[in-house]
Computed example of a mutant assay.
Amino acid sequence: MSLDDLNDDLTDAYGDLDDELSISLDRETRNELALLDAALEPEETDELVRRAIHMLFQSTVDTGKLDFQLRSGYDVTYDEYLSGMTFEEMTGADQYPTMDDERRYQF
């Protein structure tokens, strides 16, 4: 295969994206997806989108961005989500009663 064949496949894949995907893509994304489609030759373009989502998810987990977003929005980490309990619940820190500071030193 040659560069011309790649360009032809890329042009064909680029044109088919409107028919296969129900999302709108900017020019850069369409070019990248068309190139991946031409190079990797998946059964359907949807497979590339699924792979991209998996890769984005994995890199977000690996870099700690998912934990940061979860902690910011939900005050949990991904590990806490997977285990079904918070760090405090895992370590037993939440089983002690809270101190009433107003009555703490009263006898």
Rank of each mutant, 00 (worst) to 15 (best):
T45E: 03
F87A: 13
Y14G: 11
F87L: 14
R104Q: 14
D8R: 09
Y74T: 05
D18S: 15
Q58V: 13
I53S: 07
D62I: 06
G73F: 15
E47P: 01
A52G: 15
K65A: 13
R104C: 13
R103I: 04
F87E: 08
T77V: 03
L25P: 01
R27T: 14
Q69P: 01
Q58D: 13
A93N: 05
R50C: 01
S83F: 10
T63N: 15
L10V: 07
L40T: 15
M99K: 14
M90P: 01
H54T: 11
A13H: 05
E102C: 08
F68S: 12
L10A: 03
D100G: 09
D62T: 11
D8T: 01
R103H: 09
D26M: 04
H54A: 10
A34M: 06
D4Q: 10
D62F: 01
D67P: 10
D12F: 03
S72Y: 05
R104H: 13
R103C: 04
L36E: 01
S2I: 02
G73W: 12
S59A: 11
Q69T: 12
L56R: 10
T63M: 09
T60K: 06
V76F: 07
E44S: 09
Y96W: 06
Y78H: 07
F57T: 15
S59G: 01
L48T: 09
T86A: 03
N31P: 03
R30N: 11
D37Q: 12
R51G: 02
L17S: 10
R104P: 10
L35D: 03
E32F: 09
L6S: 05
T91V: 09
E20N: 05
A34W: 02
T86D: 03
E41Y: 03
D4S: 02
E102I: 04
G73C: 15
D100V: 06
R71D: 11
A13P: 00
R104N: 11
L82Y: 05
R51D: 07
Y78P: 07
L35P: 02
L48V: 09
Q95P: 00
G84I: 04
T63S: 15
G15D: 15
D75G: 14
Y81K: 11
N31M: 12
V61L: 06
E41K: 15
L21T: 08
G64T: 07
V61W: 01
F107D: 02
S24Y: 08
L48C: 12
Q95E: 10
T98C: 00
L33C: 09
S83M: 10
T91R: 02
G92I: 00
S59H: 13
A52I: 00
D26A: 07
S2K: 03
I53L: 14
Y74R: 14
T45K: 02
E89Y: 00
Y14V: 07
L48F: 04
Q95A: 06
N31G: 07
L70R: 08
M99H: 12
D5I: 02
H54N: 08
Y78C: 06
R50P: 00
Q58P: 04
Y105G: 14
